[in-house]
């Protein structure tokens, strides 16, 4: 009858772990309450209270979209695609050597070259494309080139990071086997490393291209060419039906680019 006292006891968590979890949840709730208060301090409730009307008003002005405006958008759309594609190419081109320098199993020197490569990756990744574009518009002037370079600089870190992780995950036995034939360093990379990372490489590049299409649609806001310039102009003239048309074009482009990238990734795996 009194089996429970005889049977060995087992608990999912120790009392200490339970207490820690309870404290964690408590902290989270308290933090939420505090944040809510801080947020409310700076909110003007008068504006919030008529938010539904405002949204309905803008929505009403957006509809119907200015369908005819699309003829003004073909050229900026083409620019946007070019910025994304050329920017991705530029980024990938620089990312490949950086990735090989950053991967512990291919870097020429763990002490000196690897930290440098990691620094390049971190600095490229820590700055948003829009900020890169702001800087570059100031340096090389407004236009497509600034956009392409901005996208390229941002992509280096992204592609290099994912690629060097793929390089570090390769099967070293295949590398050893090729090395044992008397192959040189370059041949080992060509025959043993590259075949193993090729699917990852295509997957990463196409994924980044897909992201870059989305990012390059807004680069025009700071003068770096593409749809963003048009968007900026329509927003500042309060031409909401044109804005709606631009949104539709962006949506269409992103859907198509996602479809393309999904197909490419399917094909290489």
């Amino acid at each position: 009858m009194n089996h429970s006292s005889l049977n060995p006891q087992w608990h999912y968590r120790t009392p200490g772990q339970s207490l820690l979890r309870w404290l964690g949840w408590f902290w989270l709730v308290a933090f939420t309450v505090v944040c809510w208060q801080i947020m409310n301090e700076n909110t003007i409730w008068a504006f919030v209270s008529d938010a539904p009307q405002q949204a309905a008003d803008i929505g009403g002005r957006m509809f119907p979209p200015a369908w005819g405006y699309i003829n003004n958008l073909w050229h900026p759309l083409w620019d946007t695609l070019n910025i994304a594609t050329l920017g991705t190419l530029l980024g990938v081109l620089f990312a490949i050597p950086v990735a090989f320098m950053a991967a512990t199993n291919t870097t020429p020197s763990v002490r000196f070259v690897r930290p440098l490569a990691l620094l390049i990756i971190v600095s490229s990744r820590s700055i948003n494309s829009l900020i890169w574009a702001l800087l570059l518009v100031a340096i090389i002037g407004p236009g497509l080139l600034a956009g392409i370079v901005a996208i390229g600089l941002r992509s280096i870190g992204f592609v290099a990071k994912l690629l060097y992780e793929a390089i570090e995950e390769i099967d070293e036995k295949q590398v050893e086997a090729i090395r044992a034939t008397g192959a040189s360093g370059a041949q080992v990379i060509d025959y043993a490393v590259v075949p193993q990372i090729l699917p990852a490489f295509w997957g990463i590049s196409v994924f980044r291209w897909d992201i870059n299409i989305r990012e390059s649609t807004i680069l025009g806001l700071v003068g770096a060419g593409g749809l963003g310039i048009q968007l900026n102009a329509s927003l500042s003239t309060l031409a909401w039906n044109q804005v709606a048309m631009i949104f539709i074009v962006i949506l269409g482009t992103v859907v198509i680019s996602e479809w393309v990238s999904a197909r490419v990734r399917q094909a290489v795996l």
Partner: peptide, 8 residues
């Protein structure tokens, strides 16, 4: 375990 380059 052969150590062939699988994708070649």
């Amino acid at each position: 375990e052969y150590a062939l380059v699988e994708r070649l």
